[in-house]
Design a binder for these strands. Structure first.
Lengths: 254, 254
DNA sequence: ATACACCTTTACGTAACGTCAATGTAAAGA
DNA sequence: TCTTTACATTGACGTTACGTAAAGGTGTAT
């Protein structure tokens, strides 16, 4: 399939000016120029434009995008995984902002009070994250993946290492849960630690964590026989206990 | 509490230049100017800056923000609620993009194919959503909340009846999944039906459904042996198959 | 032949600041 | 008291990612 500026622009939702500009700065050259000087784009360019728009959506500058897409050793799949991780970060930022808005609404209703510093919490988080987005790669090159990833724990795409850590967490959860079960108190320290471990473990599988979804999953463990079977294997009643611990955990968590 | 440019800037995470610019364009005037010509900001200004940054985050131009925050009839609480709604819309857009990325990754792995049009779905969706953001309120005013909200009603409270229905769904899922597995095509009709049943079933346990969380759970079935064991019990490979079906499902779903 | 929708390049305009430059001021230590 | 350092001020020009003419060539349908 071949496209002129307008056809490609309409399909992609960008202006013809944008396409000419991308040509000008060397970020997306047409496949060929026809006898009348028209820009003609082909399949390769469609794919490349998609890449460009992905990164643009992330707030990456065209200059950086240029480096990314014109690098000879460009690993598309890896780039996409990184891209995905960044989108998830952005989403987390949004969640922070939404939480802040909720809090502000509560504030204006007179339900709570909020310090000046707190009022900008969401935005500051964004700055930190923006910083991560800008310098993350640099830092990774410098100190290796381990160091960086250890701090943002939100690594997705489940590497082998992640899998190991998730498994370790799962085992820790099982142990802690057994100990906690013997105390009989879902609100007790060890039960709450189990609930927290469960949350941590969950975060390896869920892109976004919410208390409601967490509590919902806890309920599912009780309601659905296949999950109950797993948790009750060694000690009947453990599924119910975990659910209650999670309920307390998600209720008291701020 | 009183703040100079730098103090306010640091707290809010903006530059002093920005604050001077906001003064210049009349969007945030200091409470007073001291004898040396320094800008001194007070409580009112802190709150107003927060408002401004909220809107900025949304992509509203400073010109429009000016109109909003300087309007005499400006209803803060209502603005916050609208703001919140828009943030949620933005989050949904992000979900669409993430789904698109997932699909592209799958594409580059050669698992599925994607038409040129599909490649821009996330971006187009954004346009549609922008439209919704603009006219959604209008439609609601026109036709009332019932009609609009009918589509996003959620089942809550898990009654006995609900539990029965969830169990019925789970059985139906197991059956459909077996049939689908034999076709070998995760994008096929029966596999997609299975994915949809899975979603329905999930909705009995989760308060909020998101494609991303759904996909995440699918991945969890593959990565975590306890879940894999359940799904692979009768037929090894079923967990992977379900995950792929869900990936396609959450990717193509609009 | 004319209309009309497309294409081209050139070039200036814009938003929201960043980044000097040149200069004045407050606070703290020698 | 003097000096250093950190902060403040107002210009003024630079930047990014295009929008928006202007002035003109191209393709095809009537």
């Amino acid at each position: 399939m071949e496209y002129t500026v307008q056809k490609l622009g309409q399909m992609a939702g960008v202006s013809t000016r944008t396409l000419r500009y991308y040509d000008e700065i060397g970020i997306l050259k047409p496949a060929r120029i026809n006898s009348s000087g028209y820009r003609i784009y082909g399949q390769t360019e469609v794919n490349q434009l998609q890449q460009i728009l992905f990164y643009k959506e992330l707030g990456v500058s065209l200059e950086n995008i240029k480096e990314i897409v014109t690098a000879p050793s460009f690993d598309v799949e890896n780039a996409l995984r990184e891209h995905r991780a960044k989108l998830l970060t952005k989403k987390a930022q949004l969640d922070a902002l939404i939480a802040n808005v909720d809090k502000t609404i509560a504030l204006s209703e007179g339900r709570i009070t909020m310090s000046d510093k707190e009022k900008f919490k969401g935005f500051k988080q964004k700055l930190i994250d923006d910083n991560e987005a800008k310098y993350g790669q640099e830092i990774r090159d410098k100190y290796g993946y381990e160091v960086v990833n250890k701090s943002n724990q939100k690594v997705k795409g489940m590497s082998e290492r992640d899998y190991e850590e998730a498994t370790k967490l799962a085992n820790e959860l099982t142990e802690t849960l057994q100990i906690a079960f013997r105390t009989g108190d879902p609100a007790g320290a060890s039960a709450q630690k189990a609930a927290d471990l469960h949350r941590q473990w969950l975060c390896y599988y869920w892109d976004s964590y919410s208390k409601e979804a967490h509590a919902g999953l806890g309920q599912m463990y009780v309601d659905d026989p296949r999950f109950t079977a797993y948790y009750d294997e060694k000690q009947p009643g453990t599924a119910v206990f975990l659910r209650d611990a999670i309920l307390v955990y998600t209720g008291t968590q701020n």
